[in-house]
Amino acid sequence: MANPTRWSTDTGPEHSQWYVDRFRRLAAEGADLAGEARLLDTLVPPRSRILDAGCGTGRVGAELAARGHTVIGVDADPVLVEAARVDHPGPRWLVADLAELDLAAVGEPEPFDGAVVAGNVMAFVAPGTEREVLRRITAHLRPDGVMAVGFGTDRGYPLTDFDADAVAAGLRVEHRFATWDLRPWREENDFAVTVLRRPAA
């Protein structure tokens, strides 16, 4: 990893295990953890190939796999990826920095129909790599492939910068919502879910 992510520099050494334990507890309590997956499932054809970029503990990718999609999950944190492998066998979970993403190099050359970037991933990548992260994910999408990205707009990455980075990465902004369950977007909202598309060739 050329540049450490904010996830590693801005949190303590026990944070990753706390995060794993938190989502295991929420799942055991029956919390609804599938909102992001439900949205992406509506944006792609059945049995699509999905990239879970910044997959964390695998909750989103696992739900997409349960809905019949082929899922590859990638995260820079080996603790989270190991939890995904233990809790959600089936999808392929990989440790990799999204700013250096090259899945063909690890035997996954086939492009993806869609990508999901949930859990404030864009606010946790290494500072200054946001545009490259979006470019790398876009490069793994097929023409007309779709990407859904959600993050807190109060976390140091303004939406104006995100939109500019998305366009520079070769994406087109199609929709914006305030939540993963598609509540209307307003400027005062502190969270945004953006649906983007790689234009067809």
Score class of each variant (00 low, 15 high):
residue 1 M to S: 14
residue 1 M to P: 15
residue 5 T to V: 00
residue 6 R to K: 14
residue 13 P to S: 08
residue 20 V to P: 01
residue 21 D to F: 06
residue 23 F to W: 15
residue 29 E to R: 10
residue 30 G to Y: 07
residue 33 L to F: 01
residue 34 A to P: 00
residue 36 E to M: 10
residue 41 D to V: 06
residue 44 V to H: 07
residue 52 D to G: 05
residue 59 R to K: 05
residue 60 V to R: 05
residue 64 L to K: 03
residue 69 H to E: 09
residue 70 T to G: 12
residue 70 T to H: 07
residue 77 D to I: 03
residue 81 V to D: 03
residue 81 V to Q: 01
residue 81 V to I: 10
residue 81 V to A: 06
residue 82 E to W: 04
residue 91 P to R: 02
residue 91 P to Q: 02
residue 98 L to T: 04
residue 100 E to H: 08
residue 117 V to I: 08
residue 122 M to A: 12
residue 131 R to L: 13
residue 136 R to K: 15
residue 137 I to L: 10
residue 138 T to Y: 05
residue 142 R to F: 06
residue 147 M to H: 07
residue 150 G to T: 06
residue 158 P to G: 13
residue 158 P to R: 15
residue 160 T to D: 15
residue 161 D to V: 14
residue 170 G to I: 00
residue 170 G to C: 04
residue 173 V to R: 13
residue 177 F to I: 01
residue 178 A to I: 02
residue 179 T to L: 06
residue 179 T to F: 08
residue 180 W to A: 08
residue 185 W to V: 04
residue 193 V to K: 04
residue 194 T to Q: 00
residue 194 T to D: 01
residue 195 V to K: 03
residue 195 V to I: 15
residue 195 V to N: 10
residue 196 L to A: 13
residue 198 R to I: 04
residue 199 P to F: 01
residue 200 A to V: 11
